[in-house]
Structures are given as structure tokens and as C-alpha cells.
Design a protein around this nucleic acid. Structure first.
Lengths: 179, 179
DNA sequence: GTCTATATGCGGATAGAC
DNA sequence: GTCTATCCGCATATAGAC
């Protein structure tokens, strides 16, 4: 590989980290591993990131922003049909499937980064749109099956074209709502 | 608290470990933490367990045995109806909900303990009974939504009486199968 | 921007006294 | 059965030269 033209080292660190995370998980990946993979030393990383947590945060940031925008958009937008909602939620999960796989594999890290609370909040927003406020137990259950199953399919199943997967997943999720 | 009558230290170690795991996760809990909680020192733990991994294994063992017996039982038993299957799977997940919560929170540990493969195998056994061999994409998706949603409900939702929760979850899962 | 060298701490694990 | 003392390795992080 040719040497990088200019100072995009920060981005290269992030990419190396993601590649290693995908193989061995976030928590099992040390700064040493990352530095080795780039052929630099640990202190070099500290020039670009204040701390390990700073690096992690920079990787998770884009997903957070997207999820937060999605939830906020739903809050202010005109009501949509359940199928539309399920479909757009699938798309959201699918966009960030790589990061979600990491998060699932290492929930503790997301706990460190204080994301768990936000996840719950996002889910709550969706749930209320699907089944309204003060839902019954049956509603809560159906909502958990629908949204959980939907994101599971988006993240865990490899299939192209995606449109096929999306349609099948939305159908199953919709059925689990029991109308 | 009164001092323990006799040498049930091994069990007390296991209990202390589980309590700490529930609060801070398996991977984040060191032997030092466990020893401190019992008011003993680290080497004392090594009298009762050969290693940290040995301790972890001893905690997970009962669940493994139960899951394996369940899968084996299905393999040899006469075919059951989808609703019966979903119901018994709910019961299984509910029995071990505490341990499953830990496992979800720390998938990497189960990876260490080489349980991931078995989990996949268990799921496969169930899936085949639900949708037969060589399933279509739509079948795979529906199966993932049904079984994933079912165990999510068994593990994540606090509700008594359990029978109510079970019925609602099985209904939702059954609907997601689309007949 | 990246290096060498180093501080500091915590993790699991063992030796050997009591 | 439990202790004190200790080894070893690896983690994050910093100081300061180039």
C-alpha cells in the first residue's frame, strides 16, 4: 500500500480500530493492538485522541446522531402507519448494522459510554407510536417481539437484495403486532 | 449475619460472584471484587476453584445441561405443535432468565466459554421443528422474530403472574410465524 | 506527528507459612 | 482453608526528545 498522502491518521486509526473490533470485540482490543496494526506506537494514538474512551466515542457518535434524529423526527412528524414505521426502523437498524453487531457483542462498553439509557428511550418513543401510551401487557409483549425481531433480522441476517429481507422482516413484525 | 456453620464457602463464592455480575457484568468483575465482598483474599478463591474460568464454568453449567437436555428431548420426542414448542421454549428461557441476562450483557464471556456454537445449534434444532429443513428466507425471518421475541419477553419483561406473560408472548410469537 | 522510555496500576495466578 | 508476599504480564497514560 502506498503511504497516505496527508494527515488522515485520525481516520486511519478509527478504521483500524473498527476492523479489529469486528474480529475480536471492543473490550478485547487494546490500544497496543490498534497501534501495531497501523505500524505506529501507542503514544502516537494519544496525539489524535485524548483517551481510549475518546476514541470509542468518536466511533459511536455517527450512530447516536442518526438514532436521535430519527426519534426526534418521529416525535414531531405527522403520524405514520405501523408498516411505514416498522419499515423505517428496519432501515435505521440496517444502516448501522456493523456498529450494532459490535454493541451487541459488547453491551458493557455501551454501558460505559452511557448509551443504554438512550436506547431504551428510543425504543419507548417507537413503542408509543405503535401502541399508544399506557399499553396493556399484551401490547408491550407484541411491541417487543415486533421491534426486537425487526432489528435482529436487519442486523443478523445476511441477504441480498436487502429489499427482500426488509419486506419479509416487516411482514413478520407486522403480524406479531396482531393487527 | 451469623458466621456460616460449615464449609459451604464454595457456594458462597458462587453466590457473591452472581450478585456482583448482576450489578457490574461478568467481565468487569475481578476475583479481587469477589474476594472483597466475602471478606477473604484472592488466594482463598483458588482453594475452591482452579481458575477464574473454572468458576465461570461452574456457574453456567446448570443452564447448559438444561438447554442440552431440552434440545435432545425435542430431537427424539414425537413432534409437537408449534404452540406447544413455543410455550416450552418460553419456559426454558424463563427458568434461566437471570443467567441469560448476564450472557446478553457479556456475550464475549460466553464466547470465551465456547457456548456461542451450542446456542446456535439449539436454535437450529428448534427452527427446523418449526419450519422444516431448507427453509425460505421468509421462513428464516419469521422464525428469528418468533424465537428471538419469545426469549426477549421471557428474559426482559418483569410481570407476574408469569402465566399471563407466557400466554401473551406465545400468542405474539405464533402470529409472527404467519401460520 | 511520531518516537523511546517510563510511570503506575490491576489483572490472574502461585509459593509457602500458619 | 485462609493468609502474606510476590511474580508476571498487559493495560492506560504521560514526559520529553526528535
Amino acid at each position: 500500500m502506498p503511504r497516505q498522502r496527508t494527515g488522515d491518521t485520525r481516520a486511519r486509526i478509527q478504521q483500524a480500530a473498527l476492523e479489529l473490533f469486528a474480529v475480536q470485540g471492543m473490550q478485547q482490543t487494546s490500544l497496543q493492538d490498534i497501534a501495531d496494526r497501523l505500524g505506529v506506537t501507542k503514544p502516537a494514538l494519544y496525539y489524535h485522541f485524548a483517551s481510549r474512551e475518546d476514541l470509542l466515542n468518536s466511533l459511536v457518535e455517527p450512530m447516536i446522531a442518526d438514532f436521535e434524529a430519527y426519534a426526534e423526527g418521529l416525535r414531531v412528524a405527522a403520524p405514520v402507519s405501523p408498516r411505514e414505521l416498522l419499515g423505517s426502523y428496519f432501515d435505521l437498524a440496517y444502516r448501522h448494522r456493523a456498529m450494532i453487531q459490535l454493541a451487541i457483542r459488547d453491551l458493557s462498553v455501551l454501558h460505559e459510554l452511557k448509551l443504554a439509557d438512550r436506547f431504551i428511550e428510543w425504543r419507548g418513543t417507537l413503542a408509543e407510536l405503535l401502541i399508544g401510551p399506557s399499553p396493556s401487557l399484551r401490547d408491550v409483549v407484541r411491541c417487543m417481539v415486533a421491534l426486537g425481531g425487526l432489528s435482529d433480522c436487519a442486523v443478523m441476517i445476511e441477504h441480498t437484495p436487502v429489499a427482500e429481507l426488509r419486506e419479509a422482516a416487516v411482514d413478520a413484525a407486522y403480524d406479531s403486532l396482531g393487527r
